[in-house]
Structure formats: C-alpha cells, structure tokens
C-alpha cells in the first residue's frame, strides 16, 4: 500500500513538471512530436529508476550524518552531507554514460531510439531534483526510494507525452504570431498544471 501511495503521489500529485517545473528545458525543447517525447520520457523513467536507489544508498551509507558508523565508531560523527550535490550529480552523469554504452552495445535498436536523448538527461533537473527530494523525504527503505524514482519518472513521461500530443494538433490552429511555439507551450503547461492541481484532492 505504502508503495502504491508513493507512486501515485510522486506521479500525479507532486508531478515533477506541473508542480515543481523540473526538467522544463528538455520538456519544452523535445515536445514537438509524440514519438520523440515517448523516447525521452522512457529514457527519463529508466535513468530515474536506476539512479534514485543508488543515490539512496549513497545517502544512507556515506553522506548522512552518522552514516559512516558501519566503518567503526570513530566515523560515527562524520557528516559528509555537504558533498551530496556533487556526489549525486557525479552518480547521475556516470550512470547516464554507462547506460549509454551498455545500450549501444547490447541493443542497437533501443540505442537508435533513446541514444540521442541520453546525454541530455544528465543535465535534466528532474533527475537531480528527484535525488534531492529523495534526500529530503527520508524514505524508510530502498524499495520506497525506487518506487519514488519510478513514480517521478512516470509523471514526467505523462507530462511530456501529453504536451507533445497537444503541440502536434495545435500546429493547425491560428495562434497569434508572437505566441507561436514557446509562448503557447508555456500557456498550455500552465493550464495542464491547473488541471493537475485537482489531484491534490486525493487523500492517500
């Protein structure tokens, strides 16, 4: 139950795009067609599911105050949390690199589909954002952290696919010149954000 709660909460209520604006840069840049949106969305889910648990382990076993106590009592008071930004981003960047190489070697077809998006992801704020929120929410175990990663990724996936679908159709509408493209995308995201606010009414 707890897992389902975390999933629904992170995917819909705390949606990365609509409530926190995380990953907006690639969200706006790569949402012109549904096909590419699905590609980038899947890549984000994948990277989040892999990096969030790794960052969780890093946080609980190394970075947190007292986390190093498994090394011996003299380390029990160490607090490395000031290093968390740099460690998280290093993990994310290297996992992305690793995933890119693995996918390229073992599944050229998937690489063809995801390949160009993977480098973009290292600097997608949704990934680092999920790591930092994970740190703040202090999940009880690694399972919850993984589900949180999955949920956040899924929420991001829905967001980008939805907006891409709208943008595909909107090409045929008469939009005032200055609002064409980015302007309209902002407005649409705002409206969708309002709709997603409705999920706040969920009691979990």
């Amino acid at each position: 139950m707890e897992y389902l709660n975390i999933f629904i909460k992170s995917a819909f209520i705390d949606n990365m795009v609509f409530t926190f604006f995380f990953g907006m840069c690639s969200y706006l840049a790569v949402s012109k067609t549904v096909k590419t949106a699905v590609g980038l969305g899947s890549a984000v889910i994948f990277v989040l599911v892999v990096t969030t648990p790794i960052n969780y382990l890093l946080e609980t076993l190394v970075l947190q105050e007292g986390a190093l106590s498994w090394l011996g009592d003299e380390y029990a008071t160490m607090d490395l949390s000031f290093l968390s930004f740099i460690m998280f981003i290093a993990v994310i960047a290297s996992i992305v690199q690793l995933v890119e190489m693995l996918v390229e070697k073992f599944s050229p077809a998937l690489y063809g589909a995801l390949g160009i998006f993977l480098p973009l992801i290292a600097v997608n704020c949704a990934i680092l954002g999920a790591a930092l929120f994970m740190q703040q929410k202090q999940f009880a175990n690694i399972g919850q952290a993984t589900v949180y990663g999955l949920g956040s990724g899924f929420g991001w996936f829905i967001a980008i696919v939805l907006i891409a679908a709208i943008r595909e159709k909107i090409k045929y509408s008469h939009i005032p010149g200055p609002m064409r493209g980015v302007g309209m995308a902002f407005l649409l995201t705002g409206l969708m954000g309002l709709a997603f606010l409705g999920f706040l009414g969920f009691e979990l």
């Binding site: 609509f18 604006f21 010149g177 064409r180 309209m184 902002f186 995201t189 705002g190 954000g193």
Partner: peptide
C-alpha cells in the same frame, strides 16, 4: 505554480510583439 507559466507566456507575447523578428 501554474500562474508563473501564464506570466511568462504573457511576457513572451509582449516581448515578441515588440520584436517581430523573434517570432517562430
């Protein structure tokens, strides 16, 4: 949160109306 997006959208509208060469 969504209101920031509306404001930026209007900001873009005003900016691009004044600088038509920026229109996509």
């Amino acid at each position: 949160p969504p209101s920031s997006l509306f404001i930026v959208a209007v900001y873009i509208w005003v900016q691009k109306t004044r600088n038509p060469e920026l229109i996509e």
